[in-house]
Design a protein around this nucleic acid. Structure first.
Lengths: 343, 343
DNA sequence: AAGCTTCCGGAAAGCGCTTTCCTAGCTTGG
DNA sequence: CCAAGCTAGGAAAGCGCTTTCCGGAAGCTT
């Protein structure tokens, strides 16, 4: 490559090819209008010679839009979200979409800021991942921002609960947790405790509610004191589990509302000398791939995480619909070593 | 917010405020030039009223640059990379940088494409994460692209090996592995095997070399047949470990060159009925946080992953240096349950 | 062969912003 | 009291591209 000297633009290419700016542009972006084969070749050559790289901002301006899609997750280092992110990135690439990543560090009020930033960037769409809180103020701010964004032509998709003005991919938390509960009862467990995550996170609430419902079908209740709230993280699970062990009456089986908490709980129990899985059973939710190697391997509810991002992107690429759409994915109970049958 | 009707620009704001375009611009981007307090207030009001959102592409054009930083990782769902990504994202935010994420799915030839795309986007910088292969052709393509990018004013940083024309954050793989080897010998192990990852990945090679060097200091060799190559992933570890068990003479201790492989190996051993950790010890490398809950907990080499992204970003924000800079981070051996002292 | 359509290249009008460059109006000092 | 010096607002020139809109040339039709 010869000296491009870093500042080659279409004008240079056109000049070198001996054609007009318009022609050069037409050749280079495979436009609808045809261009003579000879000129086309000349332009191609010139562009290659000069190592021409089109200015994306200029294109965005002229075209009135970009190929950027914003991805907003609560915490990219959490394997649940990084798996979803991977699926979004993977499916974005073939469509020529560029993914912009934002991690709110679970400070949900920042989601609105990111959406504002995406509007400013003229991003084509946004994918909001993660559970929403019940904080109405935050929700309202986010909704307003999303409305402004879609009014400006942006597309929005959410993965989680359907409480935003956006096409939504829903995980059937409640039915999954219910099925899990029933399975655990079938295995012979009767006394349960739940590590329930933050009280205001909808995902956590749904899973708890579903779990309780499943138990209730068999006449089993979980007392409020056996439901321990905490962070939706590994450490949150560890702490909640530790707290649980202080109680006088230990449960037979602990349901952590996600896998990340469940493995934290596993460690907490082990650190206190509990013999797993015989002395205490543990179940999780999500079936995170990178957590499959813990011992005892987790009984959990498998979510098709790879599909979630794909579907969300699908929404963005589809024609905008009149009303926001919904796609539900259900989970599947997977029984593993952490919940052996009660003998 | 009144009807912005989605298409408000600075001209509208200026008109509503009854000032010129120039003044509106000066107010809104806290420019160097002062503007009378009254006008300033009028512009602010107008912008708020109209729910004005500046066009980032237009700004990029006029300013000749963006605040975008590209992050290129081999696989965002791998906890090693997602941890680094988290640290990059976290430290980007306070500087107003926007992170664009690309995951190559370990197809390294795509790194060059992404750098080209970033040049086109006028991105401020790029952070390339991950081990390089020894494939000279790929390396050359990437180097050429990076040179073109920096020639155009972009900044580049790499996390991994210093074989690219970029400021580099280096993990001291070799010395870390050496220290680990010596520690394992001190614990009483003598017969080792290594799950070595891909033969052409520099990181994997360095760790293997360092490990061997450490053993050699104590007069111990690892035969070539006890070094098993495979993918740098969990499944790669599982498979390599399975292969190992077919051998006639089992080792006392297995070193997997990263934690992800190590946990895969753990599962493989367990699936074959090996009693861990007494019958067979396992050690890893990286000390991935989300893998700390496996049992037996992994002896490993702790890398300050959170610092890596921070430092890389630091390079991008610094004044460009004459020659490319280097920052080294060393690992620290952490002994846990997976390698009990040999009695 | 004249009138039509078709085809293809070029000129030019933006896209929305930043930033020089001017200029009018004030302040200030000798 | 006037020249010199500031200050702050506005006009306008880009930034690099896409895309109408035009017009000349070539191909068809009858």
């Amino acid at each position: 490559m010869p000296r491009g000297s870093g500042k080659v633009n279409l004008v240079d290419v056109a000049r070198q090819a001996g054609v007009s700016l318009a022609t050069a542009s037409r050749v280079l972006n495979g436009s609808t209008r045809s261009v003579g084969a000879d000129l086309r070749e000349r332009v191609r050559q010139a562009a290659a010679n000069l190592d021409y790289s089109p200015s994306a901002p200029a294109q965005a301006m002229a075209r009135g839009g970009t190929d950027v899609v914003g991805l907003v997750v609560p915490d990219i280092s959490d394997p649940y979200f990084s798996t979803i992110a991977a699926s979004v990135v993977r499916h974005a690439e073939p469509h020529g979409l560029i993914i912009t990543l934002a991690s709110t560090e679970r400070r949900f009020e920042r989601e609105a800021e990111y959406v504002a930033s995406l509007r400013s960037q003229q991003a084509r769409g946004v994918v909001l991942v993660g559970s929403r809180t019940t904080n109405e103020e935050q929700l309202e701010a986010l909704r307003a921002e999303l409305d402004a964004y879609t009014a400006a032509g942006g597309r929005a998709a959410a993965i989680g609960q359907h409480i935003l003005p956006a096409d939504t991919v829903i995980v059937e938390n409640q039915s999954g947790a219910r099925a899990l509960a029933e399975e655990l009862v079938n295995l012979g467990y009767r006394r349960f405790a739940v590590l329930a995550g933050p009280a205001d996170l909808l995902t956590a609430r749904d899973r708890l509610a579903g779990f309780r419902e499943g138990l209730r079908r068999h006449g089993i209740e979980v007392a409020g004191r056996d439901v321990i709230n905490g962070e939706f993280t590994r450490d949150g699970g560890y702490e909640a589990a530790s707290e649980l062990l202080e109680r006088e009456r230990a449960p037979e089986c602990v349901f952590a509302v996600n896998d990340v908490m469940a493995v934290g709980a596993l460690s907490a129990f082990r650190d206190r000398g509990v013999r797993l899985p015989d002395e205490l059973a543990v179940a999780g939710f999500d079936d995170i791939a990178s957590l499959r190697d813990v011992w005892p391997s987790l009984t959990t509810v498998r979510i098709p995480l790879e599909r979630l991002g794909e579907q969300a992107l699908g929404f963005l690429l589809d024609e905008p619909a009149e009303r926001s759409r919904t796609r539900r994915f259900s989970g599947e109970v997977v029984v593993r070593a952490s919940t052996p049958p009660v003998s």
